[in-house]
Design a protein around this nucleic acid. Structure first.
Lengths: 126, 126
DNA sequence: TCGATGCATCGACGTTTGTCGATCCATTCA
DNA sequence: TGAATGGATCGACAAACGTCGATGCATCGA
């Protein structure tokens, strides 16, 4: 549920707020502009997604068997080097979209349920 | 409705697809990963939003009287120079989130209805 | 006609980002 | 124990990005 964005070093700076229902049902023509802090948090959350390779990674992990995948599953279909794939996965984990679990030799990445939808909701409520 | 992203020079490359309803009602555990082209388009659309200044600009334009604002309305509350504000507005217009209209000496910016929600829907359907 | 104002564009700059090869560590297996 | 494999991290580098001051072009009002 919480989509985080690393700030200094793996430090989460964003906990996605619940969707503001009043927004959707009775938003006036003129509303309050978003605060600087919320803009920075949402921008960081979006920046983590604003890359073709990372969007494909998210999609590939979700589409993979059992909803999880290791780096070796992703490198070849993505067409990028292993260090680059690891880098992108780290960004996605840091932002709270993926989790990482180690089993034996492999690190399995898995989509955080609802993380993408939370970001989408936040975006729509700007 | 269409959220565009300039490709070479003001050339729109993205027309937001309609929300794929089958996705929300009966998505299987394992789906098809997004195509490279769609990932690039969505990434471009998100990149235009993944900046605190631009998110605040969108919000400020929407919150402004009559739903429109000129550059001079935005520069001071945003705390950035006029060229920088113009630059960000250009990016947002290019991506299809804002429109620009000239009346007399002023250029008025206005939110494209539904553009933000379209992007959010696309994001949620990754 | 001339000064003032709004704003786009240009050029420059420092920072951030995406990418890779090289390296190193952990785990497995012969 | 030693080779092989998965994968994180490092260092380097080019490209993209955000920002600003300077400039130029409209438009308006005196």
């Amino acid at each position: 549920m919480p989509v985080n964005v690393w700030h200094t070093e793996g430090m989460p700076v964003l906990e996605l707020l619940p969707v503001r229902d009043l927004q959707s049902c009775c938003a006036p023509i003129t509303r309050e502009p978003v605060s600087t802090e919320n803009a920075e948090r949402l921008a960081a959350a979006l920046k983590a997604l604003a890359d073709p390779a990372r969007l494909r990674l998210i999609s590939m992990v979700a589409a993979h068997e059992d909803g999880e995948a290791c780096v070796c599953d992703l490198t070849e279909p993505l067409g990028l080097s292993q260090p680059t794939v690891s880098h992108h996965l780290k960004v996605l984990v840091g932002a709270g979209y993926l989790t990482r679990t180690k089993r034996g030799t492999w690190h399995y990445y898995r989509l955080v349920p609802g993380a993408l939808d939370s970001a989408a909701s936040l975006l729509a409520s700007v």
